[in-house]
Simulated scan of single mutants.
Amino acid sequence: MTTTIIADDHEIVRRGIRGILEGEKLCTVVAEAADGLSAAQLVEKHKPDVLILDLNMPRLHGIEVLRQARASSPATRVIVLSMHNDEPYVIESLRAGASAYILKGSESQEIVHALKEVLSGRRYLSATLSEWAINALVAKPADDADPLQSLTQRERMVVQLAAEGHTNAEIAEKLFISPRTAETHRTNLLRKLGLQTQTDLVRFAIRKGLIQP
């Protein structure tokens, strides 16, 4: 049986998705996550066949969860379930390795259809998204100069938490590191990104879709 992890910060959404999947007897839900960091850790632990992932997740943005999931469990296929229908989110998700992108306003059976498609090795997009346009844009090489690519996995986690306004002590607690280490990560990532102030960091995070404006 196909194994699945559901990651969404709303319990009612997770329950609804679980009900749909188990009702169709398509897969077994092995775990649920209410935040991004837990989602990434659960994928690394269970290495499920499928991860159903929301983008707006606390503690770690869905795009970063997606990148980490693809790195720790390459065989896991990721279905993004999001309220965002604008191209930057879709493009970034597909470039990060998502197999499908479904809008939360879709019919419930679309999740079932998307699951069947990705398990067959195909990409799936909600009908309201322009597939030909997305494919054309995804085919374009990503910007090699993207400064995010210069950061380590831990530094990318710190970027989001710092941009959300967390102190070094709070970041340390969330990531199970020392405050001194959190401070070092913050200093290094600011240097790598060419940023000077907290305002610069927040603007960068918004521009990259890591946090909401």
Results as ranks from 00 to 15, higher is better:
75 A>M: 07
156 R>G: 01
102 I>A: 14
152 T>S: 11
204 F>T: 05
34 A>W: 04
142 A>G: 10
34 A>P: 01
147 P>C: 10
184 T>D: 14
210 L>W: 03
127 A>L: 04
56 N>K: 14
113 H>S: 11
71 A>L: 06
157 M>L: 10
146 D>E: 06
118 V>N: 05
27 C>Y: 01
130 S>R: 11
116 K>R: 09
73 S>W: 00
80 V>F: 02
173 E>Y: 09
42 L>K: 09
204 F>S: 12
12 I>E: 05
83 M>R: 11
60 L>E: 05
76 T>H: 09
74 P>V: 15
32 E>Q: 07
2 T>K: 15
197 T>M: 10
200 D>S: 03
169 A>T: 15
126 S>D: 06
97 G>H: 04
207 R>V: 04
164 E>A: 15
65 V>A: 01
173 E>A: 15
104 K>I: 08
121 G>S: 01
8 D>C: 11
159 V>Q: 12
32 E>K: 01
7 A>F: 02
40 A>W: 00
118 V>A: 12
54 D>E: 00
119 L>W: 00
99 S>W: 12
23 G>R: 09
187 T>K: 14
184 T>L: 14
128 T>N: 09
165 G>A: 08
79 I>H: 02
200 D>F: 09
115 L>T: 04
95 R>G: 06
197 T>V: 13
63 I>K: 00
47 K>F: 06
196 Q>W: 11
59 R>W: 13
80 V>R: 00
68 Q>W: 03
18 R>Y: 10
98 A>N: 06
180 R>E: 13
98 A>S: 13
203 R>T: 10
142 A>D: 10
212 Q>T: 14
24 E>S: 15
86 D>Y: 11
35 D>K: 11
41 Q>H: 06
22 E>H: 13
35 D>Q: 10
155 E>C: 08
29 V>S: 14
103 L>Y: 02
210 L>H: 06
155 E>K: 12
187 T>I: 10
211 I>L: 05
169 A>F: 10
69 A>N: 05
124 Y>C: 05
190 L>Y: 12
177 I>L: 11
37 L>K: 12
192 K>P: 03
188 N>T: 08
213 P>L: 13
133 A>H: 07
174 K>H: 12
201 L>K: 00
176 F>G: 13
177 I>C: 14
87 E>M: 15
82 S>T: 14
115 L>F: 14
